[in-house]
Amino acid sequence: MNVSVIVFPGANCDRDAAYVTRDLLGQPTQMIWHEDRDLKNADLVIVPGGFSYGDYLRCGAIARFSPALQATVEHAQRGGLVIGICNGFQILTEAGLLPGALMRNRDLHFICDRVPLRVERTDLVWTQHYPDQAVITVPIAHGEGCYYADADTLQAIEDHGQVVFRYCDATGAPTPESNPNGSLNNIAGICNRQGNVLGMMPHPERVSDPLLGGTDGLALFQSVMSKQLQTI
C-alpha cells in the first residue's frame, strides 16, 4: 500500500507515523511537503499530529489551505483513504472532510496520558482487526481535543454510526469521568459517512511498537493494510 504522510512546517508526528507504516509494517511510505500537490499515488494519506504552522490562529485553520491538503481533499472525494491523527483530525474538520470541531480541553490544560477507548464499529476498513466492542488503551496528547458539533450534526453523526472511538472506562462504559477533555458524547474519533476518512485525537502510532509496551494501535494500521500485509 502506498502511504503518503503530509509534512507541514510544525508537524511533529509525521516521522512517528512513517515509522509504523514503513519500518514496522513494511509499506512504501512517502513524505509529502505541504507545498506539493502530488500525493505520489497514495492509497492512504496520513495527516499527522503536531502544530501545523504553529497553530497560532486556530488549530488546523491554515493547514487546510495548503496544496497538499487540497490534494488530500480531492483524494478523499475520489474515495481514497485518509486518516487524520490529533492535529490531523483538527485539520480534517477545518477542511470540511469531517463534521464538527475540536475545542480547548475542558480543564484548559494540555493533556498527555493513556486512555481507554471503546471501538464502536469494527466493520470499517480502519477497524476490522479489532474484536467487536473492544476496549483499547491509546495515548492522547493535545490541548484542543474537546470534540464539539451542534445538536443536529451530532445527532446525524450518531444516526449514521460515524463515531468510531469513544472515551470510556476500563469496562467500556463511556462515563463522564472517563472523558478526558469534555468531548461531546465522549467522542474520540469519527469517520465520514462513506467511511474512507477517519479523524481521531488519540495517537494509534504511539502504541504500535511492542518494544514500547503496547500494540493497541497497531491493529488500526493492520486493518487498513490487511490486503497488503497478507501478501507479504
Partner: peptide, 15 residues
C-alpha cells in the same frame, strides 16, 4: 508531567 507531551517521537520506554 501530564501537561508535557512525553511520548512524541515514539521512543519513550518508561513513562
Amino acid at each position: 508531567y501530564r501537561q508535557y507531551d512525553h511520548q512524541v517521537q515514539n521512543n519513550t520506554v518508561l513513562l
